[in-house]
Design a protein around this nucleic acid. Structure first.
Length: 490
RNA sequence: GCCCCCAUCGUCUAGUGGCCCAGGACACCGGCCUUUCAAGCCGGUAACAGCGAUUCGAAUUCGCUUGGGGGCACCA
């Protein structure tokens, strides 16, 4: 029987879910779903000093938001748990002991101060930094002396000083490291927690992970992991190192590049479908032209062969465009559902709540094709809700062909015509206003432009008749009246 | 400094020796549509880092150079 495909996403809760991490999660998830394998989430909380409160929840929220469901892990359990490394300490300690007993690892009593001094010296001499193996071959007396001092040792891997470690990366091909360039890295810290290297190997093995898909930043620690697998006699998984996601300055994406947490994108009004699609295309492609592609199709066509080797810059412009595409694809019901929270939150407190839903449902279609982000919506729609339009009166005269007195006259005539109009539908309005332009000897654009400003306070809005029809006769007349007043007091 | 990875338009990418004086998308610039905006449509600017080698033929293979990135913690 073929070995089951099992992949994992193993975030450490030391911060919020970074888009780079989420892309890694996504690729793992896609790989599992494509192969009909399992997607495991494991929390790597072995650094007690850097734990961030709420980070686990935020990470899981991020996964949930993108629709990346996990088969084993926090909340769902599974046969290889626990899925928090802090709950598996004994396992790592046992393995570390075993490595020491076998002679593949050793206790190191060096103080942080000594290590720092050593590093400083190495830097001064322009030597590659790395542990100098001071404790690798301690004589028993010396070791006894350290123990007597009550020093809690760390456990270090006894890395072979010669030979090479080679592995086949599914994306990059064969990669070889000389063992001599590796130092004796720490396996178990003095607080008895494992380092990433140990915990990661032990867990990937004990959780029967078949493929490790992780970011390229891990490439150079892979030989260390392989050395541990070898010492333990474990068969290593397959490795695939995904290209990095970089900021616009080509450096590793970080907070100084702006929004970096997936949660921030959610809050700014990106749609998860759009983010999913966009992230899938960062480092992977279907063919030479497909951009917008449904989730199911991405799963079906996903393969590591089409993952690129080159680091990618996070191109927010393209994400924005793609989000707009997905926003426009939404049905009115769907759009209403996702837009409402943004409207509630972003509309001025002056606007009465709760919002009139039947009115909202008439406004929203006019906004939908103009919004790139859901957070654009309150601004795009505010004039539908606010009673007192706050605009620069000069805008009323922004049409270059109209003088103040003309504008006044036009508004007055328009007002008189509209008062008479009972049916305020788009068609009916058009039937009145187009002829009016002709009658006044105006270009339609000049008349409609003036009315637009009077009625909305803006020069760019959804189509005028639609807008007026949604606003209703009352509001439109009041606003025209008010515009007349504004002009008179100029 | 040492080790590893990478190298096609500004950006994301297609391209696995002839189909490529390099295709798509975003952005940008024109035009059309049009009551403004948006959307849509049409068109345009724009790239194989350099040098050698292999080959009848290289974006595609190899080498070197250059450039970029990542790693070198009792962090992950």
């Amino acid at each position: 029987m073929e070995k089951e495909t099992r992949v994992r996403f193993a975030p450490s809760p030391t911060g919020f879910p970074h888009v780079g991490n989420m892309r890694t999660a996504l690729f793992n998830w896609l790989f599992a779903r494509h192969c009909g394998g399992k997607f495991v989430v494991r929390i790597e909380d072995t650094d007690q000093t850097r734990l961030v409160k709420g980070a686990v929840e935020a990470i899981l929220d991020g996964l949930g938001w993108l629709g990346l469901d996990w088969d084993e892990g926090p909340g769902v359990g599974g046969p290889y748990g626990p899925y928090f490394q802090s709950q598996r300490l004994e396992l790592y300690q046992e393995i570390a002991d075993r490595l020491v007993r076998q002679g593949d690892a050793y206790y190191c009593y060096c103080s942080p101060e000594r290590l720092a001094a050593m590093r400083a010296e190495q830097e001064r001499l322009k030597l590659p930094p790395g542990y100098d193996r001071h404790c690798r071959n301690l004589d028993p007396e010396e070791e006894a002396r350290y123990i007597a001092q009550g020093i809690t040792p760390v456990v270090r891997m006894k890395v072979p000083t010669d030979g090479e470690t080679t592995f086949h990366d599914l994306i990059r091909g064969n990669v070889t490291f000389k063992n001599a360039t590796l130092d004796d890295f720490v396996l178990l810290k003095s607080d008895h927690y494992p380092t990433y290297h140990l915990a990661n190997v032990v867990d990937d093995w004990s959780m029967k992970i078949s493929h490790v898909l992780r970011a390229e930043e891990w490439l150079s620690s892979t030989p260390r992991h392989l050395l541990i697998y070898k010492a333990l006699g474990f068969e290593p998984p397959e490795f695939a190192h995904l290209p990095m996601i970089l900021g616009p300055d080509r450096s590793k994406l970080s907070k100084r590049h702006g929004a970096v947490s997936i949660i921030e994108y959610k809050e700014k009004g990106y749609l998860p479908q759009a983010m999913f699609n966009f992230l899938a295309l960062l480092g992977w492609s279907v063919d030479d032209k497909t951009e917008v592609i449904p989730r199911e199709d991405i799963i079906n066509s996903f393969s590591l062969e089409r993952v690129s080797k080159t680091a990618a810059i996070f191109n927010i412009e393209k994400l924005n465009w793609m989000n707009g595409v997905y926003v426009r694809q939404l049905s009115l019901d769907e759009f209403t559902k996702v837009a409402l929270p943004f409207l509630e939150k972003g509309l001025s407190p002056q606007v009465g709540r709760p919002l009139d839903m039947s009115y909202v449902r008439r406004v929203l279609p006019l906004v939908q094709e103009r919004a790139k982000l859901l957070s654009d919506i309150p601004e795009l729609a505010s004039f539908f809700f606010v009673d007192d339009l706050d605009y620069d009166v000069g805008l009323l005269l922004s049409g270059k062909n109209i003088t103040l007195s003309q504008a006044l006259k036009i508004l007055e005539v328009s007002y008189r015509q509209l008062v008479e109009l009972d049916d305020f539908s788009e068609e009916s309005l058009e039937k009145v206003l187009r002829p009016l332009a002709l009658a006044l000897g105006l270009k339609t654009g000049d008349l409609f432009g003036l009315l637009r400003v009077a009625i909305t306070g803006r020069t760019a809005t959804p189509p005028l008749f639609k807008t007026m029809s949604v606003l209703g006769k009352d509001r439109c007349l009041k606003r025209i009246q008010r515009a007349i007043g504004n002009l008179e007091s100029m």
